[in-house]
Design a protein around this nucleic acid. Structure first.
Lengths: 209, 209, 209, 209
DNA sequence: AATGAATGAGGTTTCATTCAT
DNA sequence: AATGAATGAAACCTCATTCAT
């Protein structure tokens, strides 16, 4: 249950990668162990030998996905100097992470829907550190008199919400009737990166004095 | 598969209400027909007699929940006059709807996570009408020179994202270590309505010239 | 788990009868639910619907087998008057019960081997009542001066042990080399009832003053 | 399948000792090869390399346990002179063997319950020799006119039955309600050796003229 | 309209055994 | 001689669905 990722065998890594994709696609209950094993190219019993039961497997996937994600976040943020630059960096890093980890948004959505019952303590702590970083950025900006005072949690929700909702609603948007799409989206389906830059613009306008 | 809602018997309504709650709690795959029947206080066979199979039941739940929600939205928006008032009204209506329908956020999250495969056409259309309304508000504001030009879809994502994420992350926030909570939330867990009003402030600041 | 036997459906009775035989033959771990279902002529899922899981099924079998057995015992004993007659009756009743319930000896042996972990409280109580009856017989005989004082539990063990061991060792005796059998058994394989009568003779001789 | 015991390696002995305990505890079907390997502190594959498959392992355990037991029996019996002394010795030796080999009673019970299908020929022969010895004792006593004529097999069953049942019923007796225990056992739980001596008294009284 | 009962299909997990090292 | 890893087969159990009443 508590395998040090660095010590994982190649087989275990293959299984976890497969599990990550299948869980992201179908959720916990909708995923069958058979599907994971097949996707990983191993026998079902091997999966149990290497990792454990379905719940352990899921917990391990959630942990590794969210923890590594948060690590990426933090590295990104430290590179900027002024609060404004840091806040921009924060948004860009989040966008890049969402973009680079296609399974992430859906796993986050499902965890939220499920009340986060599968989130291990260690993930909560990583998350906390991320929010602390954002809090420090906003506080610094407020102290310098360039930001209005805003609750960090809310900023996080708006940024994450916009990015994740935009990303995951893609298949639904694709089904929109032609006419509608033109009216609302002006015929364009902006890429995630364009959206991220628009989010950046809006959030900055909302926060800057 | 397509029962006219007005013709529903009392039994059918009880089943659908139970299904709505159980599906919201556990998702489609995580829900058993047995659990719905038990929660509705009817025999499983009765459920099949009244509604149909599990998929039909889910589709019916999603349809009724989202469609009625969108109807509420639209009624709310029309009551305001100036674009600014309308935009505020839009956000407040959304917040009130999320607040008044506890099952809504989780169903939306799961639908997004699942790519919206269970969303019937009619729901997409309702959604479209909602976005058209928002588009008209933003366009009117831009034409009057009080709003900057912003993509309506993005505004929608930011508002919905913030509201739904805040609502559904409550159980996770409750697990946050004391120290962290104080730093980030300053010890307060604002109510959903307070959050909605802060979202309103931020969005308006972002959109107003 | 606590079905009143009188209220059991025909199907449930068929399943329990099949389970009784298969468990007696192969023990708990050696029995598959598939085998019971097949032997009962019902679908495996029906078995779960009617009774419950394997453990519940086994507990129910042990309970019903041992409880009804003890009831038989008690009826038999009450019919005799003098302590000597009662003690003879006790032994004969036990022999008849072992003879009439082929699955009983093996289930008792397995329960003893397993430490009786599956014996429900109610079975223990029945057993207790049986031993109380035997105790009263021996005490009465001792008071009348016709029995020597002997521990009731030991008498019970010797009688049961002899009867059950004789019964269950039949397949092993059948494998004995010809020559040996002649020497030990004088070529005869006495029937269970003959053995019971010899047990009766021996026990009485041991107990009578 | 037939390894000469003298040639067994230390590892093989460790495995067999572990197997003996685990099989006694859980029976053949209830035992997993994993459990034995773990209990022996060796890798599962080593177990297969050293002994063979599960059935071979079990047969080897049964053979060694019962055979060595019978050897002990025979040594003990030869030390006494008169038939009465020999018969007493027989019972005491059996009691001592049961007492000194805690796994023996349960393995015997399970073998009886299973019809002795796992008893190898060699075990049957040892058993036969034991019964021949008992037969000779009883015959000698009868010829000297001090014993009544009794079937040796029955004596064996009664003695073994009483000893083994008493031993293995200990956990069940421990669960007996206080009140009952006092009535039947007069508050005492006699040790196995006390019980053996009472068995001796009773059997001798039954057999002596 | 409602239900107890039944079931095929499929899900999760275990286990004896083998193999490459 | 010993072991970590792998696996086919089979075990237990669940669940959506149907049917007779």
């Amino acid at each position: 249950m508590e395998k040090e990722p660095r010590l994982q065998s190649e087989t275990a890594r293959r299984i976890l990668a497969a599990a990550r994709d299948v869980f992201a696609e179908h959720g916990f209950a909708g995923t069958t162990v058979d599907a994971i094993a097949k996707s990983a190219g191993v026998n079902k019993a091997t999966l149990y030998y290497q990792i454990g039961d379905k719940e352990t497997l899921y917990a391990e996937v959630v942990r590794s996905v969210l923890e590594s994600t948060v690590d990426d976040f933090q590295k990104g943020i430290r590179q900027a100097k002024t609060p404004e630059e840091q806040l921009r960096h924060y948004i860009r890093t989040m966008a890049a992470t969402v973009e680079g980890n296609p399974w992430l948004p859906r796993i986050i959505l499902r965890e939220l829907a499920g009340g986060g019952v599968s989130l291990p303590e260690v993930v909560l702590q990583s998350f906390g550190r991320l929010l602390v970083a954002l809090t420090e950025i906003l506080d610094a900006g407020a102290k310098e008199g360039i930001f209005v005072k805003t609750p960090p949690f809310l900023i996080h929700m708006m940024v994450m919400g916009a990015l994740i909702f935009y990303k995951t609603s893609a298949p639904i948007r694709a089904r929109a009737p032609q006419l509608l799409a033109e009216k609302i989206l002006q015929g364009r389906q902006p890429s995630s990166l364009e959206v991220a830059s628009e989010v950046e613009t809006l959030i900055l306008k909302a926060v800057l004095k």
